[in-house]
Amino acid sequence: MEFENILIDIKENIATLTINRPSKLNALNKQTIKDLHNGFKMLNEDANVKVIIVTGSGEKAFVAGADIKEFADFSIEKGTELARIGHETLFDFVQNLETPVIAAVNGFALGGGLELAMAAHFRVASLNAKMGLPEVTLGVIPGYGGTQRLPQLVGKGKAMEMILTAQMISAEEAKDYGLVNYVVDQAELLPLCEKLANKICRNSSVAISAAIKSVNANYTNCVNGYAVEIENFGLSFGTDDFKEGTTAFLEKRKPNFE
């Protein structure tokens, strides 16, 4: 598959998806969102890919926001459609992907960039990373899930402060607030993400997919997350991975998940 604004590299069971618009600080435009959707979809359907790492090209930016020129003259109807399509094709799509996604935040993650990082299943940042939702400085609000995912991750009060002041926070502050899991030097960012990905690769992909679905259920309106967990827990007992995992445990050996 041909892509204009992303690069994909697969090594064994780990795929690295790089947003590649360095001259625009990897800003999200329509084509990039389309490429990301197709790239994530392709990797999710590849049985050999067990973890996806998403990052930005260069050392300045993960994604420095959306491409404002594309929507500066939009009407109410076009703005609503822009957000709806974005949620469906990328941000909700990534959050609900069966394959785990790690965001390697290698610089500025602003607006849609932070929203993409928050849609990933967890985040690792480099020391130079800066994160924020500056949309109110443009007279709009975060439209790709920022008003929902940020409070889930850092709490309502801090999310309100970040959104209403539009101020950026440092990587260390993001770690203190629970927005990112680790902060490392730029050179250590991808190696750490790959180390974490390798740990994930050793586990059951079937169980991991069910775990993602169950955790996400807790943040879905009108869904009982406990009921989803119970259902997925029960379904696990009918999988080949459960048979292999329990047999390996009883035989005191490492499991070999297909």
Rank of each mutant, 00 (worst) to 15 (best):
A207Q: 11
F62M: 06
I208A: 00
N216R: 11
I169A: 11
D92E: 13
E172L: 13
D9Y: 12
G238M: 08
T247A: 05
A120V: 01
E12R: 10
L82M: 03
D185T: 13
C201Q: 05
V124W: 03
F91S: 06
E135T: 06
G79M: 11
T147V: 05
K11M: 08
K24F: 10
G56V: 00
K41G: 06
L250K: 14
E115D: 13
R21G: 14
K50I: 10
D46E: 14
Y219H: 09
N106R: 13
A227W: 01
K195H: 04
L114K: 02
E2S: 13
S170G: 04
G146K: 01
Q152Y: 11
I14H: 12
V49R: 15
I102C: 10
F233H: 15
F122V: 14
G143M: 08
N13E: 13
D241K: 00
F233Q: 06
T89W: 05
A217H: 05
L114N: 04
E188L: 03
E88I: 05
T55V: 12
I200L: 14
A103K: 08
K30D: 14
Q186A: 05
E229P: 14
D35E: 04
A174Q: 01
T147C: 03
L116N: 02
K41N: 14
L28Q: 07
H87T: 03
V54Y: 04
E194V: 08
F237I: 09
R21Y: 06
F122E: 05
V54S: 03
E173N: 07
E135L: 03
L235F: 09
G178L: 08
N106K: 09
A174M: 04
N203T: 10
E88D: 14
N232L: 01
L138A: 10
M118E: 08
Y182R: 09
N5R: 15
